[in-house]
Amino acid sequence: MTRLDFELQFARGDFLLAATARIEAGVTGICGPSGAGKSTLLALLAGLLKPQSGHLHFDGDTLIDVRAGHFVPPWQRHFGLVFQDGQLFPHLSVRDNLLYGYKRLSPAQRRFELQAVVELLEIGALLARRPAQLSGGERQRVALGRALLYSPRLLLLDEPLSSLDERLKQQILPFLLRVKTETAIPMVYVSHAQAEVDYLADRVLTMADGQLQPSLATRDAASGLARGSAGL
């Protein structure tokens, strides 16, 4: 079943992004060099940027329809976004960071509880600390936990490991795999590191010069689950 369906065009200065895809459940990796437009695409999906034209549907909901003047703001999309450098709120403790999105949900919308996420990501010892007292790897795990506790319909991960060294990346990747298998939240994972994407993704799209294309390395190409872009 198609969960995310979009056709988006976005221009800023000389940069032009044009992306079309239908994405199913599971993890969709988007790979490409720096400056290709991967983060811009995630910002468009999250609602942090407005496209000049196009549409975006998720699970039957229309989130963007430029022609009809329809745009659902990020706080009403219920998507989680994990940023490259965590973006933890410096004035809040780890516990309050984790609960920031959770507190803004009605009890019926809450799929995960603090204790379960804390155990999943092994961050129980960090709850009373401030973000400035965390290492890079700890910060990213807390950022992931904060997005999970928001019980997102779709989890967007924007190069979540790029600021970490190789040792920390190897520590975090298994946590991401656990999130994938234990929560079953559909994810879009953006990275310039092909190995990370191969490790996690069920299918891979490639972004180059603002254009989204199906990757030759798409792992489930045979099943036809992912169909990326222009030309498909």
Binding site: W75, G80, L81, Y100
Partner: peptide, 20 residues
């Protein structure tokens, strides 16, 4: 970017202003 992070966690404009 912290304000945008709050937006993606369900906080609208006024909520983000007051809490972040």
């Amino acid at each position: 970017r912290l304000e945008r992070a709050a937006n993606t966690l369900g906080a609208g404009r006024l909520d983000t202003f007051l809490s972040i």
